[in-house]
């Protein structure tokens, strides 16, 4: 495995921060080596400095994309932490439906939900399954479910909606597995009825959220933990701008907004916490 020098460590860590916001601990040089070593060799680079220069100047951004795929932690599972999905089902969606249902039955109810670091899609598909089960007359609704992630690889897998059995076993109750997935060999694919409800695309949360509009519910879970404090502050400020005034924000179960964004106040419902704008 190609060894990384202290100078290169600094250079590469700074570069990764610039392109993704992800802050990597420079004392963990093995982390850089195990994740980037093979990309370096694959592109004929003898040093990490060479890799850095190539990645930076290459117009197609192929290496940059590979680096992002390699350093991002895509760890996720269906119905992760359970609580937020119960919250969605029993409180947030019913309240939102009440608030958004127009007076005239001819009009549709608009609801927009965003999974801001959707990784391989399990979070957004879990949301879609909850909605499918909660709302029987779904044609009366105009529901937009958007998942975004910086990793091309993650976005591609999310779009395919295809999971191996290890990914399936984690978090997914057997009845939902049978109902919403089709098995093929060792892998499972989400059925079209759920697939058609969602949309995935690439987005770097460090950049402006141009053209996304306002959302009624935002899931921004387990991504800000990879960012520095100033980057977290900027991120949640932009998220506040993208959330409807009466909208809801859900963050990871071990995350906190204390000292990060005073525009949000935490509220408790049973065993979960959600945030609303002041």
């Amino acid at each position: 495995m190609l060894k990384i020098s202290p100078d290169e460590l600094k250079l590469v860590a700074q570069y990764i921060h610039d392109i993704s916001g992800i802050y990597l601990d420079q004392s963990k040089s093995y982390l850089f080596e195990t994740r980037l070593g093979s990309i370096a060799t694959e592109h004929g680079c003898n040093t990490y400095k060479e890799l850095y220069q190539k990645a930076k100047t290459e117009p197609s951004k192929t290496i940059e994309r590979k680096i992002i795929d390699a350093i991002s932690t895509n760890e996720t599972l269906f119905f992760r932490d359970k609580g937020p999905f119960e919250l969605l089902q029993h409180k947030l969606l019913p309240e939102l439906i009440d608030a958004r249902t127009p007076g005239s039955p001819a009009l549709k109810t608009n609801i927009k939900i965003w999974s801001a670091a959707s990784s391989t899609g399990q979070e957004l598909y879990s949301i879609a399954i909850i909605i499918k089960e909660l709302i029987p007359n779904i044609s009366k609704y105009n529901i937009k479910l958007l998942g975004t992630d910086i990793s091309d690889g993650a976005v591609a897998q999310a779009s395919r909606g295809k999971y191996n059995k290890f990914e399936m076993e984690r978090g997914l109750p057997g009845d939902k597995l049978q109902r919403y997935f089709t098995m093929f060999g060792d892998s499972w694919t989400i059925k079209d009825e759920i697939r058609a409800m969602v949309q995935f695309r690439k987005l770097n949360l460090m950049l402006p959220f141009a053209g996304l509009g306002k959302f009624d519910i935002i899931f921004c879970r387990n991504v800000a933990i990879y960012f520095t404090l100033p980057d977290r502050q900027k991120l949640f400020n932009k998220i506040a701008d993208s959330l409807a005034d009466d909208g809801y924000l859900i963050i990871g179960s071990t995350e906190s907004l204390t000292g990060i964004c005073p525009r949000f106040i935490p509220k408790r419902h049973l065993r979960s916490i959600f945030y609303q704008k002041k």
Partner: peptide, 10 residues
């Protein structure tokens, strides 16, 4: 950890 953090947050 989540439980502790939630309590502290509120």
């Amino acid at each position: 950890a989540a439980l502790t953090i939630q309590n502290l947050e509120i």
